[in-house]
Write a protein that binds this DNA or RNA. Structure first.
Lengths: 209, 209
DNA sequence: TAGATTGTTAATCGATTAACAATC
DNA sequence: TAGATTGTTAATCGATTAACAATC
């Protein structure tokens, strides 16, 4: 399938391709050329063809790409059907919003547990999932073997919780805490989401107007 | 101050520099060399010096950089004190979480209004700001002249609301909707936040383990 | 077949890294 | 002064774009 290692630039574009192709499929567009897709996504046709050919020849000369087929291929590459068991730590405003707002299932994840250190939240339900106390993480992980953890906790707690979760077999972190998580272990992946940085970038660009 | 146009790669690193320097300042670190900062941030010393010299010579040979001073300079470049009047459209789970979770003030923005199309939410308060009905946007903008809009609305509504806000003088969008907002007007800036894409990237990286 | 459009190689462009003279 | 570390130029690396032969 692949030809060597795929660059992170390419990987970060894949979800966007997947999204646009989903939209096209919904509009019952059967096929699309790299040129048309490029115009739609504000990329170059060249880049699209280069990107897709990292994974294989999904197109056909003189025809273009079959939308449904291409979307399915990219979905497979991304792993949208993996259903990785996922837990969330921290059920404050942000945690609750993420839990109910993000469609984990369509992104290869299945949210199966939510934990918070505040006992007052225990028993509350978010996205049909009961909030458990942080003390129960060990027992829960032992039983359900989650692979991914979403961290919606204060930055002070992040380092420590992450270590604890690695011990329990967590392989990936989707980190919303105000802390740049970098795990030393090489077989752990981290995606840091810094919403504040994103806003600050916007502010910078407003200055430039 | 600047030397020509700054590349987006550099700009996107600025908030992270600002964050790390804030942390160092809090720990009462007075000065730091590009080498030490690079080790901390997992960058190269070369890159840090290159980045900073896009804006001017903030360091001193043989000494390094004064932490507080450098942070202040970067803060000024980013515009952390601008206090751009900002409104939010959409007060669902995500909107409420963003409004209460993000410190707008420390990022050059001042959240002054929240709007939702659901009349049941009107009057509710989030982050000390009353939720208004979407119908009141025009009157509010006429009076308060907001510059930035945070969009936490469904993708179907985004295009239209954005156009309406541009008419009302909004210059920048922080867009959380499931829609790639691209404004044709050249004097409008957009920061699309696609949390779903971020999760999907994580899923891809988990597959690779 | 003729037209369209891919897959892929080559050229260009930009960003990162290395090196080192300047200087605090 | 000697040591450290910057600012900056040059070298390298990688990513994007252009071009075109292959082919549906």
């Amino acid at each position: 399938m692949s030809k060597g290692t795929i660059s992170v630039s390419v990987i970060k574009r894949l979800p966007r391709y997947y999204r646009f192709l989903g939209e096209l499929e919904k509009q019952r567009v059967e096929r699309i050329s790299s040129g048309k897709l490029a115009a739609l996504m504000k990329l170059t046709a060249s880049q699209i063809r280069q990107d897709l050919n990292c994974f294989g020849g999904f197109g056909q000369q003189g025809y273009g790409y079959n939308v449904a087929e291409l979307r399915a291929e990219i979905g497979k590459i991304l792993g949208v059907d993996k259903g990785y068991p996922t837990i969330m730590i921290g059920a404050g405003n942000l945690g609750k919003a993420i839990a109910s707002h993000i469609n984990f299932e369509s992104r290869g994840c299945k949210l199966i547990g939510i934990f918070d250190i505040n006992p007052k939240l225990t028993g509350e339900t978010v996205a049909d999932i009961p909030i458990r106390h942080t003390d129960d993480i060990e027992a829960f992980c032992g039983e359900h073997k989650p692979v991914i953890a979403v961290l919606c906790i204060p930055k002070e707690a992040t380092r420590q919780i992450a270590e604890r979760l690695v011990e329990l077999g967590i392989k990936a972190f989707w980190n919303y805490s105000h802390y740049d998580l970098t795990i030393e272990h090489s077989d752990i992946v981290v995606e840091n989401v810094h919403l504040g940085d994103s806003l600050l970038t916007l502010t910078y660009n407003v200055n430039a107007l």
